[in-house]
């Protein structure tokens, strides 16, 4: 028996909106730790890892570890029917072939339940090693989204370079080139407007902008994004999910032949 009650149901809507274009089908894993997902896109270039810790739910009952195979675009369709302020409860029996999403309006005057068929998904779980990063950039998530969107009108790839000068996002295309440099800046009115660059070593990596733009669908979840870089490793683009967890997107770099 699984029963997870999330008061901030809107968070789950935002989570699904940030996943559904990247991954078609995925297993949600429920354990005492929390509600999690790990999945790659169909070309295995990007991987997403979601964790919503059990403490973040108002009620979290998970009698035994359960893996729920779901089509993410169908799940997003169902969650779209919930109000942004609704309380969302996810329910499933141990041997269930369906999952129930229950939506309650904040003043309890409207209660809806949506039942969605589950699916069997063969997914391979990858071990993500703990890495020491050469550079970690924290910046406003909207700024990062803007940069990815702007650069993708000019080129297909972005070179992200971190030096003492700051973090530089560069692209080139048929019409020309573009460079955007963001400097370390903590003298801001609000902490979420800060750009914080921690650099152990200079690092420069090339990535496909198409995937970066897909990751920025998570922008409504968090004011800040964390970009962690190391030579010859996938970049990690992380958005916090309130105080209860995170979405981490991993993107494999383009490598010189």
């Amino acid at each position: 028996m699984l029963e997870l009650r999330l008061v901030q149901g809107g968070l789950l809507k935002k989570v699904l909106d940030s996943l559904k274009d990247l991954v078609n089908d995925a297993n949600f894993d429920c354990s005492a730790t929390g509600f999690s997902l790990q999945a790659m896109d169909s070309s295995h270039v990007a991987l997403v890892a979601l964790l919503l810790r059990s403490e973040g739910f108002e009620h979290y009952r998970c009698d035994r570890n359960l893996s729920l195979g779901m089509n993410l675009s169908n799940m997003a369709k169902m969650l779209k029917c919930a109000g942004n302020d609704d309380i969302v409860t996810i329910k499933a029996d141990d041997a269930a072939d369906s999952v129930t999403f229950m939506f309650e309006s904040p003043n309890q005057d409207k209660i809806a339940d949506f039942d969605m068929k589950l699916m069997d998904i063969d997914s391979e779980h990858l071990g993500i090693p703990e890495a020491e990063f050469q550079a970690i950039v924290r910046m406003p998530s909207a700024e990062f989204a803007r940069i990815c969107k702007d650069l993708s009108t000019i080129g297909d790839t972005v070179v992200i370079s971190v030096t003492k000068e700051g973090v530089k996002f560069s692209t080139r295309g048929d019409i020309g080139t573009a460079n955007i440099v963001c400097r370390h800046n903590t003298s801001v009115d609000k902490p979420e407007e800060a750009t914080i660059i921690e650099m152990e070593e200079t690092v420069s990596l090339t990535f496909a902008l198409r995937y970066m733009n897909s990751f920025t669908k998570a922008t409504p979840l968090a004011n800040q994004v964390t970009i962690s870089l190391s030579s010859d490793l996938p970049v990690v683009v992380e958005y916090k999910v309130a105080e209860m967890g995170h979405i981490r997107f991993y993107l494999a770099p383009k490598i010189e032949e």
Binding site: H44, L126, Y250
Partner: peptide, 14 residues
């Protein structure tokens, strides 16, 4: 030119 690598090049199955 550069070639797109895949996640499975870096992370292995568990």
């Amino acid at each position: 030119g550069s070639k797109q690598s895949t996640i499975t090049r870096f992370f292995s199955k568990v």
